[in-house]
Amino acid sequence: MSTAISGPVKSHGNVKRVLTIDQTIVDAIVAHARRDHPDEACGVVAGPIGADLPTRLIPMDNAARSMTFYEFDSLEQLRVWREMDDNDEEPVVIYHSHTATEAYPSRTDVSFAGEPNAHYLLVSTREDDSEEIRSFRIVDGVVTEEEINIVDATVEV
């Protein structure tokens, strides 16, 4: 007898520890990270409020233009956050790359993490021929890694 399992069932408490994201969006994030290497790349994937599904990729400028630091330009951020507001969207994923170290949140990443509902996606481009892609929740300074469920052609929104 098989039990029907619809979607990921792994959950701990009331935190759903999985990021479901479309392959095309992941590919675009990796391409952005490769393009900006050795500088860190950063951006947002917006999605409908409450749906926990990233649907609209918004690559952002790294105002710091640094190999070890990233920072959204504050005015670009205001414009993008307003646009999400107008579209009833929220930042579902906030991504950035580490270009010489592993894809794990640094102390700086944890200090700044200010979107408790977002998935923090990190891409490491330190290897030329492969990428390490990991996702985390960062709430009140606590880092929790989660699974990434990469899907093909999710719902058309």
């Binding site: 640094s66 990233y70 950035h96």
Partner: peptide, 21 residues
């Protein structure tokens, strides 16, 4: 007035980043 969380971070340690910036 709009308040937003600054979005920043990176591989560099926080103390080093603060000193640099």
């Amino acid at each position: 007035i709009t308040i937003l969380p600054a979005v920043a971070g990176g591989a560099l340690g926080f103390a080093a980043a603060a000193a640099l910036l």
